[in-house]
Design a protein around this nucleic acid. Structure first.
Length: 111
DNA sequence: GGCGTGACTTGAA
DNA sequence: ATTCAAGCCACGC
């Protein structure tokens, strides 16, 4: 049995994000039972570059690509999202709620 | 070992 | 509607 830490859980959930869908740090945090620790999700994403985690599918609650500055280029994150059919303007996702993917609803709670 | 920062969220004024 | 403040935990110096 493994011992899934907060970070590992975030990676697992992020990897399960469907194509053309996006989610928020808080949604993942809430799924993990730590809605108040949304910052940790973001920090976990900081290590996501060492994992196969599509961090570009994870944005803040406003649908804004807050972490795009952490990607290699400058508009890489936006390009990736648009490549999946997600429209992004001014670092903000259009029809965010339409692309929103809630792990707490789409995925079954492990608890 | 203490202090500050950070890819956030929520609630209240 | 917008703005301010607080909470959360891990990492770096």
């Amino acid at each position: 049995m493994e011992e899934p830490n907060f970070f590992d859980k975030v990676y697992q959930v992020a990897k399960q994000i469907p194509f053309g869908r996006v989610t928020s740090y808080g949604a993942i945090a809430k799924y993990l039972g730590a809605v108040r620790s949304a910052r940790m999700v973001g920090w976990a994403m900081n290590n996501s570059h060492t994992k196969d985690v599509p961090a570009h599918r994870v944005v803040n609650r406003n649908g804004v690509l807050t972490g795009k500055h952490h990607f290699d280029g400058t508009n890489l994150m936006q390009q990736l999202l648009e490549n999946e059919g997600v429209k992004v303007v001014d670092n903000q996702i259009i029809n965010f709620k339409d692309h929103f993917w809630d792990p707490g609803k789409e995925l079954e709670s492990p608890y």
